[in-house]
Amino acid sequence: MKDESVFEEPWQAQAFALALALQDAGIISPKEWSEALGARRDAANAAPDGSDYYDSVVATLEALLAVRGIASKAVLEELSLAWIRAAHATPHGSAIELRNDPAWPGRK
């Protein structure tokens, strides 16, 4: 009797872990996290089958970082585009690194 896989994709595990790590570091409280996540998980916003749960986790993280002045939505969006460009520029089989983004030559 094997339990179903806990994460469907690696990014879901990463997002979940970031949320917990922020709580461990005391940057957000568990109560604040559950309320912020809950606000995105009501019947009006969330898919009835729960399939978009980790999408909500990511959106909640982005919103909390913006509120805390840690990173604006625009900064995060630019950075995620940089990661996508870096991935395309990275040969298959090599680790994707941000410095591989051709449009971001100054980055370490």
């Binding site: 872990a17 970031l18 940057i27 980790y54 982005e62 950075l79 990661w83 991935a87």
Partner: peptide, 29 residues
Amino acid sequence: DNHLDPMAARVKALETILVEKGLVEAAAI
């Protein structure tokens, strides 16, 4: 080349910021 889907890229962006600012450690994640 490698492919990174948009959700994975958004999470990489979050992680990059949080680790660079020293708010979370990659090992803890």
